[in-house]
Design a binder for these strands. Structure first.
Length: 257
DNA sequence: ATGTCGGAATTATTCCGA
């Protein structure tokens, strides 16, 4: 099984780009973030024609998450309980016996912004929800854009950015609390010292200067880790393809037995 | 160069969020 996560930064702007990538990589399951459309605008027919069905939790204009899969998807959860006012940021579906969640953690803007405590509260609520809804011995994947840089190795410039947004002890402690629910950072498990990033700002030529962050993760429970062969970050798809603009995030792909 | 994007509100221009 090949499972991926990708923040597409607007599905309507990215659908041709995404379809080209699906044809090339042929993932079995993909969790998407930042759809930026309402459920009713999701192009189910387009993805069905490409061989995928979707569980979608969207909203007008912003946020929005989905689970795409070649096999049937059964919706388990729409929205993070108690945190719906922060937007459509969680959907969980069961696919081939695996509970698959797509999450889009609030950005928080900066540590002095009123959104920052909201981000921490959302992460607290996610840890509580996972503890209540999932057993650590069951097959679970939580993939998405976490908007947290868990360790210095995950940042292009830890020295300058430590203590700033994505790089605070508060965010990192809460990311660790997610792992404490019995989850593993699948990329890091297979690539313990790799300095690779999944997001680069559109501005200032950040991609070409190597100024990125690793903030997109596939977290998996022990049964998934036992099946894990490899994890890659598909940075070629952060580049323009045949004249089509890329997202500011690259896909992350895990290969499972 | 805070140097770009996507989307909304509004009618090609400005704002917001990331």
């Amino acid at each position: 099984m090949r499972i991926a996560t990708w923040n597409v930064n607007g599905l309507r702007a990215r659908q041709d780009f995404l379809l080209a990538w699906l044809r090339l990589r042929e993932p079995d399951v993909v969790v998407l973030q930042e759809l930026k459309l309402h459920d009713t605008q999701f192009p189910h027919e387009l993805f069905a024609a490409a061989g995928y069905q979707a569980a979608v939790h969207g909203q007008k204009s912003w946020n929005g998450v989905a689970v795409l899969a070649k096999k049937p998807v059964a919706i388990v959860q729409l929205g993070l309980p108690g945190r719906e006012e922060q937007g459509a940021r969680l959907v969980t579906a069961e696919v081939e016996g695996v509970a698959v969640s797509s999450v889009y953690i609030p950005n928080g803007k900066h540590t002095g912004h009123e959104d920052f405590p909201g981000k921490l509260a959302w992460l607290d609520a996610l840890a509580a929800h996972l503890a209540a809804a999932h057993r650590p011995d069951a097959a679970l994947v939580v993939g998405g854009d976490f908007n947290v840089c868990p360790a210095p190795l995950d940042s292009w410039n830890e020295a300058a950015l430590r203590g700033h947004i994505f790089h605070t002890d508060e965010e990192r402690a809460r990311f660790q609390r997610l792992l404490d629910q019995g989850l593993f950072d699948l990329f890091r498990e297979k690539n313990p010292s790799a300095r690779e990033f999944s997001w680069w700002d559109y501005r200032g030529g950040a991609f070409h200067k190597g100024e990125g962050l690793r903030i997109d993760f596939l977290l998996g429970s022990a049964p998934l880790l036992a099946r894990l062969r490899s994890v890659t970050i598909d940075r070629e798809w952060r580049k323009k393809q045949a004249g089509l603009t890329a997202s500011d995030h690259a896909p992350v792909i895990a290969e499972l037995d």
